[in-house]
């Protein structure tokens, strides 16, 4: 009897063990799919939808090199034209406000802070790989999707866990639920991926804040990969142009 129990327990442990391993590998594969291009550039349309369905639209152009250099420049609405941010390695970020004609370095220690009126927090926008950010557990499969539980590695994260569904064949995320520290589901993200050249591109990300009933649609278009962007593109001087 005792032996059977032991056997059972060890089997369960083994299964869990293999699943954990699987999850780690899945995260690695996801990182490969999402962060393998040398650089990318394109345009972004950000649609903010409030609980009454009212929309606000912003447009921006962006350039990115590797994982940790990113330039973001708003073009619309007119009042925000030229507002730019430059993200550099080690959490260094600059902000440029054209009406003031000067840039300021921004340091945000508040990960759960929302980014400029969207439903994305600084944490969501962080240019860090899945492997760096989360510990994963494979919960199971749903059709052609893998269901993963992701626990943030940083204690400063605004989330207690994420449940994400990943395309089994191509390893891009399709759907993610975000849970707060109290265990309540607070946000949902839906992704539409499209292959551009050899890379999978998150054409549309729709993030909904369930508490506020507010949605942000991030639409990427005119995307070009590996155009050979120079490091010079990501300097404070460039930010002001």
């Amino acid at each position: 009897m005792k032996r059977i129990k032991l056997l059972l327990i060890s089997t369960v442990l083994m299964v869990q063990g293999t699943m954990a391993q699987d999850a780690g590998e899945i995260l690695k594969k996801m990182d490969e799919v999402l962060y393998s291009s040398k650089d990318m550039m394109g345009k972004n349309r950000i649609v903010l939808i409030d609980k009454n369905g009212k929309e606000k639209i912003r447009e921006a152009i962006f350039k990115q090199k590797g994982n940790d250099k990113r330039l973001f420049r708003f073009t619309k609405p007119a009042s925000q034209d030229g507002i730019s941010t430059l993200s550099l390695p080690n959490d260094v970020m600059y902000l440029y406000l054209p009406s003031f004609g000067k840039e300021r370095r921004i340091s945000s220690g508040v990960k759960s802070q929302k980014f400029a009126g969207t439903d994305f927090t600084y944490e969501d926008m962080e240019a860090k790989t899945f492997v760096e950010k989360y510990t994963g557990t494979l919960l199971g499969e749903e059709g052609d999707l893998l269901v993963l539980e992701l626990i943030p590695k940083s204690p400063k994260s605004g989330y207690s866990k994420l449940i994400t569904k990943v395309n089994k064949e191509h390893y891009y995320p399709v759907y993610t639920e975000y849970y707060d520290k109290g265990g309540n589901k607070i946000k949902i993200a839906k992704y539409t991926f499209k292959k551009i050249g050899k890379y999978w591109n998150s054409e549309v990300i729709e993030m909904t804040d369930l508490k506020k009933n507010h949605t942000t649609k991030m639409i990427m278009y005119d995307v070009k990969y590996d155009t050979g962007l120079n490091d010079d593109e990501f300097t404070v001087r460039k930010l002001k142009q």
Partner: peptide, 23 residues
Amino acid sequence: MGEGVKVPKEKAKIEQLWFLLEG
């Protein structure tokens, strides 16, 4: 932004500071 604790005289500046507060 380095211009003192006061309301800017130009609307454009207010609009851009607003951008930071939004949300």
